[in-house]
Amino acid sequence: DVEPGKFYKGVVTRIEKYGASINLNEQVRGLLRPRDMISLRLENLNVGDEIIVQAIDVRPEKREIDFKYIP
């Protein structure tokens, strides 16, 4: 289970102007929005990149997770 405040290694699977889709595994994925990137710009991400993200909002009833990137 993903817990708010914990850090996870994820893989960038899609990049859109509203954010990047991050997969932690086949069943768990979430969104990294541009506003939640401290020192990383969306255009510097590539599909397949592995990054460390922090879960900031977990809504299991909607199967949604928001991530934050902290270098």
Rank of each mutant, 00 (worst) to 15 (best):
S39N: 14
A20K: 01
R41I: 10
M37N: 07
R63N: 15
N46W: 09
I51R: 00
R41G: 10
I56A: 06
N44P: 02
G19Q: 05
N23G: 08
I70A: 10
Q54T: 06
E26N: 14
L31F: 11
V2Y: 09
E43A: 11
R59A: 05
R14I: 06
I15F: 03
L40P: 02
R35G: 10
E43W: 11
Q54C: 12
D66T: 12
Y69M: 06
V11F: 09
R14L: 09
L32P: 00
K62Y: 09
E43T: 08
D49L: 05
Q54W: 11
R41A: 11
I52N: 04
V58E: 03
M37F: 05
E16Q: 12
Q27I: 12
K68Q: 10
Y18K: 11
L24D: 00
R29A: 14
D57T: 13
P34D: 06
N44F: 10
D66P: 02
G19V: 05
E61Q: 10
V11H: 05
S21A: 11
M37P: 02
V58L: 06
V47A: 02
Q27P: 04
V12Q: 00
D1W: 15
Y18S: 10
E50W: 15
L42G: 03
K17M: 11
E64M: 11
S21R: 14
L24F: 05
V11P: 00
R33A: 05
I65N: 02
L40F: 05
L32H: 02
D49R: 02
I22N: 01
R29N: 10
S21D: 09
M37H: 03
N23Y: 14
K68A: 15
F67G: 01
Q27L: 13
R59P: 04
N25S: 14
I22K: 01
E26R: 12
L42H: 02
V11D: 00
K17V: 13
M37T: 04
P4R: 13
V11G: 00
I65A: 06
I65Y: 09
G48S: 02
K62R: 12
K6E: 06
P34F: 09
E43M: 08
S21C: 15
E43R: 09
I38R: 08
I52Y: 11
R63I: 07
I56E: 02
E61G: 13
I56Q: 05
D36F: 08
R14T: 07
V47I: 13
V12I: 13
F7Y: 10
L45C: 04
V11L: 09
D1V: 14
F7S: 06
A55L: 07
T13Y: 07
V47P: 04
R29C: 13
P60Q: 10
L42F: 07
G30A: 04
I22Y: 01
E3K: 14
I56S: 06
V53F: 04
G48L: 02
G5S: 04
L42C: 07
I65D: 02
P71I: 07
R41D: 08
V58W: 09
D1Q: 13
E3G: 04
A55F: 07
V53I: 08
D66M: 13
E61R: 07
G19A: 09
R33Q: 05
S39Y: 13
D1H: 14
A55I: 14
L42I: 11
I15W: 03
G30P: 06
Q54N: 01
Y8S: 00
S21Q: 15
I52F: 09
E64D: 06
R33G: 03
V12R: 00
A20C: 07
L42V: 06
D57K: 15
L31I: 13
N44G: 08
P60D: 08
D36N: 15
K6G: 07
P4L: 14
I38K: 09
L45N: 00
R33I: 06
I56P: 01
E3P: 15
P34C: 10
T13R: 04
G48P: 01
I52M: 10
F67N: 03
P4S: 10
Q54S: 05
L24P: 01
Y69H: 04
S21I: 15
P4D: 05
I52H: 04
L40N: 04
L40Q: 05
G30I: 10
E16K: 10
V53T: 00
L24R: 00
I56K: 11
L31Y: 07
D36W: 09
Y18H: 14
I15K: 02
V53Q: 00
E61N: 12
R35I: 08
D57L: 13
Y69W: 08
L32C: 08
E43G: 08
V12N: 00
E3D: 06
R63Y: 12
L40K: 06
N44M: 14
V2M: 06
I70P: 05
N23W: 14
L31M: 13
G48Q: 01
N46I: 10
D36A: 06
V58A: 05
T13G: 05
P60L: 10
D1F: 14
Y69Q: 07
N23M: 15
I15N: 01
Y8C: 13
Y69V: 04
V2A: 03
K62M: 13
N46P: 00
A20E: 01
N25G: 11
V47K: 02
I51H: 00
E43H: 10
I65R: 02
I38N: 10
G30L: 08
E26V: 10
V28K: 03
R59F: 06
L40C: 12
I65C: 07
Y8V: 00
S39F: 14
L31N: 06
I56W: 08
K9W: 12
P60V: 12
V53M: 04
I56M: 12
F7Q: 03
E16C: 14
P60E: 08
G10R: 00
Y18A: 10
G10S: 02
E61W: 08
V47F: 02
I51L: 09
P71D: 08
Y69A: 03
F67I: 04
Y8P: 00
V28C: 10
V2E: 08
D57G: 15
I65Q: 03
V58C: 09
G48V: 03
F7E: 02
P34S: 10
I15C: 06
L32T: 01
G19P: 01
P4E: 11
L32D: 01
Q54K: 08
M37A: 06
V47T: 03
